[in-house]
Amino acid sequence: MNHRSGSGYTGIPPWIYAIAAAGGLFVLLPLVAMVAKVNWPQFVPLVTSESSLTALGLSLRTSAASTVSCVVLGVPLALVLARSPFPGQRLLRAFVLLPLVLPPVVGGIALLYTFGRQGLLGKNLELAGIQIAFSTTAVVLAQTFVALPFLVVSLEGALRTAGNKYEAVAATLGARPSTVLRRVTIPLVLPGLASGAVLSFARSLGEFGATLTFAGSLQGVTRTLPLEIYLQRETDADAAVALSLVLVAVAVAVVGLSYRHPHTGAAPERALQ
């Protein structure tokens, strides 16, 4: 099942390597160019300014909250999509995955018309005294909206790969469905769940368009790190670049953490440091 690659014949024609290298450069070069633009003597003061730290803190808090929401909503969704065939399942999957390809601004507009003051649900929430617009809750909603598909896709893949043999055995031994879920299914797909959660966190951290459209931008309340970068760029390009680097570092760390496949030998750049 777990065939090891790495030794002997790869079946890859040499010219593929050339194009692959170009592809790698295409992603790496802009990052290198950005690092080259960093004003290093000023780097620490720039990223530790009050507004930067506030934005970073807000980003980390909201992303953590969104990740929790993604797990709470996404695990049942993935289970239903992977395990119980029902009419309209393909359609449901397509809709759940939609935020992956939707421009975030569109997501923001859609959220606005749902949870906004005049929105579908927002009107009733407003009557109940709950105001979402311009609050940190709005940021978390926007991030959850765009990040949920990442969790669902990862977990659904893991569930399908794991199959349901163990669960069937557990059931024949008399375990109730909830027990099977808790004792067999979840432990079985834990790596998939973890990497899905990490990806959701990373996506939440980078969320920009939906937040800007739906939540607004106020220091300490709704201005997350990407929004802070966008604003700083207007007056202080150095601060924007420095903060971008922080965001890249966090994203690389997060994604690196979730993709430690035994056979990929990790990223060589990190080995060099």
Partner: peptide
């Protein structure tokens, strides 16, 4: 699929 997901996660503020 995983590759696609990583690509998505790594492209944060492409709006501007």
């Amino acid at each position: 699929l995983a590759a696609l997901l990583v690509a998505g996660a790594l492209s944060p503020a492409l709006a501007g």
